[in-house]
Design a binder for these strands. Structure first.
Lengths: 341, 341
DNA sequence: ATGTAAATTTTACGCGCGTAAAGTTATTCG
DNA sequence: CGAATAACTTTACGCGCGTAAAATTTACAT
């Protein structure tokens, strides 16, 4: 490997004895050049291991291969997992994903979108912060860049929406809980940071009414994204005050449930469906960690694969020219029965 | 807001009645232009809300403000947390972090580095995959780009290394376990994917010898990054076969410990330090989730803040011209006593 | 051998901006 | 008020590549 440091495509083209435009064409699509040319380029590639500058490539391209992936908060394992899933799909489809976290901050979310404009992405997979999002900024962005909204919908913006059917989620698990024991009360944050919380509360209320039970929503204090700790502290308070009206608690999400389970542990309250257990606790999300709580958490899980596949494919077909009207796809969750409820 | 869509700096400069180079200078450092000019630019900014294209900016700049942050796997909450921490510090220091995950794959790690070259970063904060990493590729990258290695060291490459002192980690918690009960055996993966595993095993062996106990390393099967499940399945197997020679188990990392705790739960084995408990389990890392296991996990925690602060600052001073010889900084962990051991 | 289509090269320009040099205007100071 | 010094503008070029059009070469069939 005679590594005389190739600096740009010009130099590489000279070294391989082929014109730069043809080399450019090769990198754009190796099959678009004559076989003999391809061989020569690939031989030179072995010798000088040159790679085009991706950001310079995209500068003057009609359609880039960039795809932006934006999630509200990467340190939440749920978003980390779905982001990883989406990234893999982008790569598999020949796109270049770039991952961004909004860090739970609406202002930063707008910042991320501005950065994304500079990237000139062919498309964007965006999980907005939800209620906290700057609607107008999102809308404007969606007008300029093909954007698919996932996880949490904001009006009817973008190409389409793909997410879980939160109404089905909560209705389904509420139904399960009602059929197998006392009807649940609903444990949530008073001012939830995560996007789908309101939908789930509403769905709980609807379901309880439909099943002929009186609902009981318990909202605990707490700011930010430290849901486990909010669930734990809130759990202690509510348990101390005996505010749970039933022995069955449906949490707005798994992280809250995990905190509540810890509070129960600390209070020596047995959780589960056995006769020796005092309460049942269920979550919602299918959080990667829900399998490893004690007791393992009964939850209704997002269909991670289906959501990310549907979202990614919808974006790709839109990028590739298919025009279709705005559509909302809400996928059903799957009840995961474990020991906690 | 007369939004006649400004397309580039040229147009914006024309609209604000100022030359493009001066506008460019303004965006580079607002204080570098006359106050009256600044006012005019900022007035125009209000009207047309234009933003320079970041990637075009960096194309021909001597020193960019880009900083790459690379971690082995973003869906591991430990890395997610430290990455978030680093990102915030970069932003606070006026840099533009771009986050990358190696997806646990050495080939992809190299891919990420190639992408990073195109970004022309002023510096990179790199947590390598470790043993699995392509040493030569890393080395080459570090020669070209100012790179600070963190979390897991690979030879003496890059500007410096900042991480936790795994020897101190394991020695410290081993010492604690010895002083408070039976000496621990060591629970690990046979072929660990994470980088610091070997150091920790070695440190366990050293510590046990020093304390005059005979060590016992138990390595369980399992591939990949699903540590909890590996810990759970391995735990079942080892418990079934009665292969734990003592009642105290030190796990190579918290995620493994979380899985082992689940196995114990499933086997109805009480974990903790009470008289009614059969075994003690301890982890290592201070994983965000370790607080919420049942029982809460005793562990030795990375000093997240100190590691990320030291790493970030070391990189920034290097970027800003300070030349200093390669140095390895290993920060001590803090023992977090909880109920599991 | 000849014609034709495909591939390639040449040439030229563009993307959105940084940056250096030289000339012009504005500000400051004695 | 004139000179010195900033600050600014103009001009010109560069970064690393895409892309379009015209000219040339190559491949393949007849």
């Amino acid at each position: 490997m005679a590594d005389d440091k190739i600096r740009n495509m010009e130099e590489f083209a000279r070294m391989s004895g082929i014109s730069r435009p043809t080399v450019s064409k090769y990198f754009n699509d190796p099959a678009s050049v004559r076989a003999s040319t391809r061989t020569r380029i690939e031989a030179a590639l072995e010798q000088y291991d040159y790679r085009p500058n991706i950001y310079a490539m995209n500068q003057n391209r009609k359609l880039t291969k960039n795809v932006g992936v934006v999630v509200p908060l990467l340190s939440d394992p749920y978003f980390a997992e779905i982001a990883r899933n989406l990234e893999q799909r982008c790569i598999a489809a020949g796109y270049r994903p770039t991952l961004f976290s909004s860090h739970g901050d609406p202002a930063f979310e707008v910042e991320v979108l501005e950065t994304l404009r500079s990237l000139k992405p062919a498309g964007v997979l965006l999980a907005p912060l939800g209620r906290a999002s700057d609607r107008k900024a999102l809308e404007k962005f969606c007008e300029d860049v093909p954007t698919l909204i996932f996880d949490s919908s904001v009006d009817e913006i973008g190409l389409a929406f793909v997410g879980s059917d939160n109404f089905q989620f909560t209705a389904h698990i509420t139904d399960y809980l009602c059929r197998t024991g006392e009807p649940p009360c609903f444990f949530e944050m008073k001012t939830p940071a995560n996007p789908n919380a309101h939908r789930r509360r509403q769905s709980y209320l609807n379901a309880m009414e439909e099943f002929g039970h009186s609902p009981d929503v318990i909202s605990v204090e707490g700011e930010g994204w430290g849901f486990e700790e909010i669930g734990r502290l809130g759990g202690h308070e509510v348990l101390d005050q005996g505010r749970f009206s039933t022995n069955t608690i449906l949490c707005s999400n798994d992280r809250l449930a995990i905190g509540l389970l810890t509070a129960c542990y600390e209070k020596n309250i047995r959780v589960g469906r056995g006769d020796d257990c005092a309460i049942r606790v269920a979550g919602q999300d299918g959080h990667p960690h829900s399998r490893y709580t004690c007791p393992p958490l009964t939850t209704i899980s997002h269909n991670y694969d289906a959501v990310s596949q549907t979202a990614a494919e919808a974006l790709f077909t839109a990028i590739e020219g298919q025009v279709s009207p705005w559509k909302s796809t809400r996928l059903e969750g799957k009840l995961i029965l474990r020991d906690s409820a």
